[in-house]
Design a protein around this nucleic acid. Structure first.
Lengths: 192, 192
DNA sequence: TCGATACCATACGCACGAGTATGGATGGCA
DNA sequence: TGCCATCCATACTCGTGCGTATGGTATCGA
């Protein structure tokens, strides 16, 4: 089939393995993270892997930390830079809705919450994002309690959407219909 | 530790294995469904299992079908029996929010969407529930498109909530705070 | 040019879980 | 009472994937 899609003849670094691991996680899940499979995909063998990492668990850990680092930083800062607080929410929703790629790892990790290694990472990331949402809702005029609950609701809707659409393949929604859904969501979740 | 918590000295039936499988799935996930582990938990050995089922896959299939059968039937019919359409949504939300046990299997299955066997089951169940929500929203006064989108949003919020709270253990929300969250959700998702 | 270090291949051992073979126990029914 | 079907135990095989041991090749500085 593909076998050697990457004829990279340079030597590999630990970062290369971490990136490959994240790609594999994104489209096959954490459970599919096997060292021999990864090695095959990179055109090398296990011998290479165990030079860079002590164990499979160590690779997962490194990949997760790498993902947590180079995460959503840009999106958050760009939204925060917007002058009008009321305009931030619709913009955030539309951006998130149309950039699918960055969310694929998050979606895969959501299905791996039985793995003890992913729990703390996901807890930190989700916590940070919800705090961000809470401050945005506050700045949009909600009281502290209302802002917190609305952030919880919004984030839950985001997480649920990921599950129901990319992992489960519910009756493939069309593009236009999806846009309509996003706008409906903006209307109902944004303070009047 | 526990080893033989169930001193059931009667012979086992296929249904016994299916129920045990569902219990195990509920609190350890689909990945933990191993025949020797299940046998140990039931106080027997593999020999028993392979008399009732041809394979592990067959057990999973049977357990999933069993779960799909004896599912949420009662809740739906009870809600439908309520005379006032506007009162149905708050009641549904409160019921679902306070009955955690029945949702544990669903939450576990949500994390197993890479398993080909669980996808069709989850697709059917989720589809039915969303259709139910859609009709409720219609009866509460929303237009067909609005009702459908609101149902999608509500169900996504439900699914996301399951992930963020029982599987991920986000900053343990208190009981009162949880009730406040549910009421907030009712206010924002129920048509005025 | 010549090691030394970094990177990789090959060939193992080993644990674990699915599935098979076969014989033993138990209960209902003639 | 004896027989047959049902249910279960024991003891294997086998595939898979992690980790190890050890030797080979490339690259760079002295």
């Amino acid at each position: 089939m593909n076998a050697s899609a990457k004829p990279e003849r340079t030597r590999l670094s630990a970062e290369d393995w971490e990136d490959a691991a994240l790609r594999l996680i994104a489209d096959q899940g954490v459970g599919a993270l096997a060292v021999e499979a990864l090695a095959r995909q990179l055109g090398v063998t296990k011998g290479s892997f165990y030079w860079h990492f002590r164990t499979r668990e160590a690779l997962l850990q490194a990949a997760l930390e790498r993902w947590e680092q180079y995460g959503e930083k840009e999106v958050i800062s760009q939204i925060e830079a917007m002058p009008d607080p009321r305009a931030r929410l619709p913009e955030l929703f539309r951006r998130v809705a149309h950039e699918i790629a960055p969310h694929r790892v998050y979606a895969a990790l959501l299905k791996a919450l039985d793995h003890p290694q992913v729990v703390p990472v996901m807890a930190r990331v989700s916590q940070r994002r919800m705090e961000f949402l809470t401050t945005i809702y506050s700045e949009a005029g909600l009281s502290p309690e209302e802002a917190l609950n609305r952030a919880r609701l919004t984030y839950a809707a985001y997480v649920g959407f990921l599950q129901l659409n990319f992992t489960l393949g519910l009756p493939r929604i069309s593009h236009d219909e999806f846009d309509a859904y996003v706008e409906h969501m903006i209307r109902t979740l944004t303070p009047a």
